[in-house]
């Protein structure tokens, strides 16, 4: 790898693009650098000097990479940092509250909360790697959201005058997570050169499909909450997560389908989400 290719790799380390997109971008940026290099050679510079000058004129890898990231996926990396760091901060603050005020700390909860927050922050740090795996990022975001929803269910049963601010914090965090998930789906699937009407339809498609997903999660969590209330923790509680798991697998394919057939995808999303809930629970009732 020559100096210019290495520079381009460093630029791409700061951007989220998918594998195919990355190749195109790499080629485009390299061509641009080659042109700059040729112009310096034409001015009488040696090849090595021309390469160095081309790189200087092209700009620093971090600056260019971050600029590219923001123009292609505005706010996405920032959102990941906000969600990740806010989750870590929530973990620390709420743990200290349970330790010193409630006097019932849970190291297990803290471990999961910090792990979840750390994964999201690591995703922001390693944006180039995560850009190649948008579905992985999506699943991670959804699991993080579910974890916060479960935390919300537990917290709302605590003394309201003490936990009110924690609940507001958590609602804001969940709001940011929802915005991120929608944007991640949209950016990772929709072609940027669609016309305005199609783009609007695609956005509606993603929004409604995510709403269906949220409904599946809400129903599953309600089921889980009921189970925990009546029986306490048991292996049975894991059954509550089956609709979520089914929906996750379905959404991997649905993400691409929404970009192609946004209107039809609303119907398939609704139908599949309903089935994801109805079938496992119907089996449970029958058995």
């Amino acid at each position: 790898m020559n100096r210019m290719e290495k520079h381009i790799q460093q630029v791409l380390q700061e951007t989220q693009c998918a594998a195919e997109e990355r190749e195109e971008l790499e080629e485009e940026l390299l061509t641009h650098l080659q042109e700059l290099k040729q112009s310096y050679i034409a001015q009488g510079e040696s090849e090595t000097k021309a390469e160095k000058l081309a790189i200087v004129q092209f700009g620093g890898s971090k600056l260019i990479g971050r600029g590219l990231q923001e123009s292609m996926y505005p706010w996405q990396r920032g959102l990941l940092y906000i969600i990740g760091i806010a989750s870590l901060l929530f973990g620390v603050l709420f743990h200290l509250y349970t330790l010193y005020v409630l006097q019932e700390p849970s190291i297990g909860w803290l471990a999961i909360q910090l792990t979840a927050g750390a994964f999201i922050t690591l995703a922001a740090i390693n944006i180039a790697f995560i850009g190649k795996h948008p579905y992985f990022l999506h699943v991670m975001g959804m699991l993080h959201l579910i974890w916060h929803a479960i935390t919300y269910l537990f917290i709302q049963g605590m003394p309201m005058n003490q936990v009110f601010l924690f609940l507001v914090y958590l609602i804001l965090l969940i709001g940011f997570q929802l915005v991120f998930l929608f944007r991640n789906s949209y950016f990772s699937s929709a072609a940027p050169n669609e016309d305005a009407r199609k783009r609007w339809e695609i956005k509606i498609g993603y929004t409604l499909n995510l709403v269906f997903g949220m409904a599946v999660i809400a129903i599953a969590l309600f089921f889980l909450w009921g189970l925990l209330l009546f029986t306490g923790w048991s292996m049975m509680a894991l059954y509550a997560f089956i609709p979520i798991l089914v929906w996750f697998v379905f959404y991997k394919y649905q993400m691409k389908f929404i970009a192609r057939k946004p209107v039809v995808s609303i119907l398939t999303g609704l139908l599949f989400s309903a089935l994801a809930v109805a079938v496992p629970y119907a089996i449970l009732v029958i058995v």
Binding site: L88, H95, L99, P105, I107, L110, L114, L122, I125
Partner: peptide, 19 residues
């Protein structure tokens, strides 16, 4: 990555020992 993961481990161990 190494610095961030180490920092997180130290934070967790610190909170654990405080607990």
């Amino acid at each position: 990555n190494i610095l961030f993961i180490s920092g997180m481990l130290i934070l967790f161990l610190l909170l654990w020992s405080v607990t």
